[in-house]
C-alpha cells in the first residue's frame, strides 16, 4: 500500500474566497467580448447611413402570399425591408480561425495530459502500485 495523501483542511475564509474567485472569472469572460462589440457596432452604423430610398412592397418584389403573411404579422413594407435587407457576413479570417483552432485543441490536449497524470496518482493510491 502506498502512503495516502492527506489534504490540508481549508479555512472558512479560503472557501468563500475560492467560490468568489470562480464567479469573478465568469463575469470577466462575459464582459470581455463587449470590448470588441462596441468597435464593430460603430463601423456598422457608418455603413447603414448610406441607404436612403424608401422601400415599397413593389420594390421588394414579394409574391402576394408572402406579402400577405408579412402584413398579418403587422409589418409594413419599410419594416419588412429592414429585416429582408439585413444579411450576415460569413467571410472567414484565416488567422483568427487558426488561432481559435489552436486554442481549442491546445486546451483539450493540456487538460487530457494533466488529467492523466493526476489520474495515475489516484489509481496508484486506490489499487496500490
Amino acid at each position: 500500500m502506498t502512503k495516502q495523501y492527506e489534504p490540508p483542511k481549508q479555512s472558512w475564509f479560503g472557501q468563500i474566497f475560492d467560490s468568489l474567485f470562480v464567479l469573478a472569472l465568469v463575469y470577466l469572460s462575459l464582459m470581455l467580448p463587449l470590448l470588441f462589440k462596441t468597435k464593430e457596432a460603430a463601423s456598422a452604423a457608418a455603413g447603414a447611413a448610406a441607404e436612403v430610398v424608401k422601400p415599397t412592397w413593389e420594390s421588394l418584389q414579394l409574391s402576394p402570399v408572402v406579402q400577405e403573411q408579412w402584413e398579418k404579422l403587422g409589418y409594413d413594407a419599410e419594416k419588412a425591408a429592414a429585416l429582408i435587407n439585413t444579411r450576415f457576413d460569413y467571410t472567414i479570417d484565416p488567422t483568427w480561425l487558426a488561432i481559435t483552432a489552436v486554442v481549442l485543441i491546445g486546451y483539450f490536449v493540456f487538460m487530457l495530459k494533466v488529467s492523466d497524470k493526476e489520474y495515475r496518482e489516484v489509481i496508484a493510491e486506490k489499487f496500490g502500485k
Partner: peptide, 27 residues
C-alpha cells in the same frame, strides 16, 4: 470573440484548479 473569451475562462479556471484547488482533494 465569445468563443475565445469562454475558452480563456476555462483555461484560467483549469490552471487555478491545478495550482490552488487540487491540493485540498483526497486522492
Amino acid at each position: 470573440n465569445s468563443l475565445l473569451s469562454i475558452l480563456a475562462f476555462y483555461i484560467l479556471a483549469s490552471i487555478w484548479f491545478s495550482v490552488r484547488r487540487y491540493k485540498f482533494v483526497k486522492r
